[in-house]
Computed example of a mutant assay.
Amino acid sequence: MNKKIGKQIKKHRLKRHLSLSKLSSIAGVSKSYLSSIENHETNPSAHMIHKIAQALEVPVEKLLNSQVETLDPEWVELVSQAKEMGIQQEDIREFLAYEAWKRSEKEGD
């Protein structure tokens, strides 16, 4: 169970001086459901996370506690070229898995 989401929701709720009742009313979810999320008893769906984030007036990323990183332009270009050549996503995954396996075999020697 992801405890970070519940902690983040509670942190932002308290920061905005909202009670469970008030936030549940704004978000359109039951107070008991919101409490169970904050107490790590249930994992909310993506839809619920979105509704709660809107009610708290924070980006979803804040609740997920994730950092949005900028993509390296060279990697974006490389992926674009691979797509133009007809290389599929699964082919790239298989290649990366193979390369990781080769590297681990070399390190194991």
Rank of each mutant, 00 (worst) to 15 (best):
Q54L: 12
S32N: 14
K7V: 07
A27T: 02
I9P: 05
S32T: 15
L71Q: 08
M85D: 15
L63S: 05
I37L: 01
S30T: 15
S66M: 09
K62G: 03
L18C: 08
P44V: 07
L34Q: 00
E57H: 14
K15L: 14
V60E: 14
P73H: 06
E84L: 12
Y33F: 15
M85W: 01
E84F: 08
Q89F: 09
H50R: 12
L18F: 12
A82V: 04
E90Y: 02
N65S: 15
Q89A: 14
V79M: 11
Q88R: 15
S66W: 04
S45V: 05
K15F: 02
S25H: 10
L78W: 05
V76Y: 04
V29N: 04
V76K: 07
S36L: 07
L63F: 06
P59E: 09
L64G: 01
S30W: 00
T70R: 13
M48V: 14
G86Y: 02
H40D: 15
T42D: 10
S66Y: 10
I9F: 01
V58Y: 07
Q81G: 11
L34G: 01
N43K: 09
G86K: 05
K51W: 00
L34I: 10
Q89I: 10
L14F: 00
P44F: 08
M48S: 14
P59Y: 03
